[in-house]
Design a protein around this nucleic acid. Structure first.
Lengths: 245, 245
DNA sequence: CTCTACTGTTTATGCCATACACTGAATGGT
DNA sequence: ACCATTCAGTGTATGGCATAAACAGTAGAG
C-alpha cells in the first residue's frame, strides 16, 4: 500500500517547502489580494481569540471577505497553514548572549520567554505536538543550546538538557493564567478538586496536599519552583562534569 | 451570550457523569448488545493502530458491525468517549509502596511506567492535553504524590514536584520508540536534521551538537539522563529542607 | 396481556477540507 | 499592438464527520 506512504511523504515535502522554501513571486497574472503572512496572522488571531477548533479555512477566509478556496492559492492545505501558524507564533528566537551570569540565568530567561509564548497562544502546545519544527522554532532551540555551550555538555546531553527545561515549561502551560485572567483550566480544574475531595479515600495524599495548599506561602510560584529544581538538577551534573576534568 | 457557557458547562457535567458516575442498568427493554467498556476498548484499539485521527464514531461502530448512532446509546458524544479512552488507557495506578529505597526510586519507576503508557498509546498525550483527569489518572497522581509523602514537601510543592517529573516524561514521549521500532517522529525527524545541517549558519551550536552526537557514549539513554537530572534537582531541594529542620 | 422503557436504525442537517472547472486580469514575447 | 500564457479568485461538487430527531422492534413490569 504505497499510496498512504506517498501521501505522507508528499505532505512532509509540502510542509518543508512551505516552511523553508523561499517564496518566488510570479511576474505574470493578476496581483495577489492576499499574502501568506496575512493569512497566517489572521489564522493566529482566530486561534488566539476563539481557540484552535475555530480555525477553519472558511473562518479565516471570511475574515478577509474572500472565499474559502482563495486561501488555497497561498497555502497548500490546512495542515501547512498550521505549520506556518506555529512557526509564526513562536516568533524570532531571543538573543540571550547579553544576559550575564552564564548558562543558568540564560536558560531561566529562555524558559520564561517560552512560557510567555504558551500564555499568548494557548493553542500552541496542542497544535505543535508531534509536528515538524520550523525555522523560528529551531532558532529557539539554537538559543537554548547556545546558552549551554559554555559547559562541557556535548551531543545528546545538550539537547536532553534543553528538553528538560522545555519539558517543565510545557508542563506548566495548561496552568498558566491567560490574558483574561480567567481560570485557564476552564471549569474542569474546580471539578477535579471537587472529585478529589469527594473521593478522599481513594486519593488520601492528594486530598491532604490540596487541603494543605493553604499552608503553602501565599506567593508560591509553581513555575519558578519547578524551574529552579530543574536547573538545580542540570547544575549538579554540569558541576560534576567540570570537577572531573 | 450564555448559550456557549451553558453548553460548556453541560459538556463538563456530562464528562463528570461519564467518568465518575456509577452505571445503573435499566431493568426494562432489550438487552444491550454493546457495552461502554467494549466501545472504549475498540476505540483505543483503533487509536493505537491507526492514530487518533482515525477514531470516528463510524469507524468504531463499524468494528462491531453496528451503526454509527448505536454508540450514542452508551456514550453521550465523542468528547466523552475520548475522556473514557484516556482514563482506560492509563489503567489502574501502580502501587509503588513495595519499591525499596524511598521516594527517589519510586518516582523513577513511576516515570518509567508513565512512559510505557505513552509508548503503548502514542495518541495519549495530544488527547489528554487540556482535559479533565479521570479516576485512574488521578490515581496515578496519587501514587506519585504518595511516594513523596515521606519528604517534608507539602501542599503545592508536592504537586509541582510530581509535575516536574511528569513534564520530563511528556517531553520524551514523542521520541519514544513505538512497538514497530519505526522512527516515532515519523519522517520529519530526519527532515529536521537535514534542515539544521543545510542551515548550519543559522543553527551553529545545534549543528555542532548533532554532529557531535556520534561522540556521545553509544548507549546514551536520553530518558534516563533527563530523569536523573530532574530527580537530582528534587533531591537537592528535599535535602535542603531536611537539613533546615 | 399490555404498557413502557429501552435498544438499534434510518434519515437528515450542517460543518468541514478540498478537488475541479471556470472567469477574468495582467504580463512577456512577438 | 496583439495575444498566448500564467496566475487570482470563485462556484460547484464530493465525501467525511458529529449528531439531532423520528421510528421500529423488544422485553420486563404491572
Amino acid at each position: 500500500m504505497p499510496a498512504k506512504k506517498d501521501e505522507a511523504a508528499s505532505g512532509l515535502a509540502r510542509s518543508i517547502e512551505v516552511l523553508w522554501g523561499e517564496p518566488e513571486r510570479p511576474s505574470r497574472g493578476p496581483k495577489p489580494g492576499l499574502s501568506v503572512a496575512g493569512i497566517v496572522a489572521a489564522a493566529i488571531a482566530v486561534a488566539d481569540s476563539e481557540g484552535l477548533g475555530a480555525v477553519s479555512m472558511q473562518r479565516v477566509a471570511a475574515g478577509f471577505g474572500f472565499t474559502t478556496m482563495s486561501l488555497y492559492r497561498y497555502v497548500p492545505g490546512k495542515s501547512e497553514l498550521l505549520d506556518l501558524m506555529i512557526d509564526a507564533a513562536v516568533g524570532e528566537p531571543p538573543d540571550l548572549r547579553s544576559i550575564p551570569g552564564g548558562w543558568r540565568p540564560r536558560l531561566a530567561v529562555w524558559a520564561r520567554l517560552t512560557r510567555d509564548c504558551f500564555v499568548a497562544h494557548p493553542w500552541f502546545m496542542p497544535a505543535a505536538l508531534n509536528r515538524m519544527m520550523g525555522p523560528n522554532q529551531l532558532g529557539w532551540l539554537e538559543s537554548a543550546v547556545a546558552a549551554l555551550a559554555e559547559t562541557r555538555l556535548a551531543g545528546q546531553e545538550l539537547l536532553a538538557s534543553v528538553l528538560v527545561v522545555n519539558g517543565w515549561v510545557r508542563s506548566m502551560a495548561p496552568f498558566a493564567p491567560d490574558r483574561t485572567g480567567a481560570d485557564p483550566t476552564g471549569d474542569w480544574g474546580a471539578a477535579m478538586l471537587h472529585q478529589i475531595n469527594a473521593h478522599s479515600d481513594r486519593f488520601p495524599t492528594l486530598a491532604t496536599a490540596i487541603g494543605a495548599g493553604a499552608l503553602t506561602p501565599a506567593g508560591f510560584d509553581d513555575f519558578e519552583f519547578g524551574l529552579q529544581r530543574v536547573l538545580d538538577g542540570l547544575q549538579a551534573y554540569i558541576d560534576s562534569r567540570d570537577s572531573v576534568s
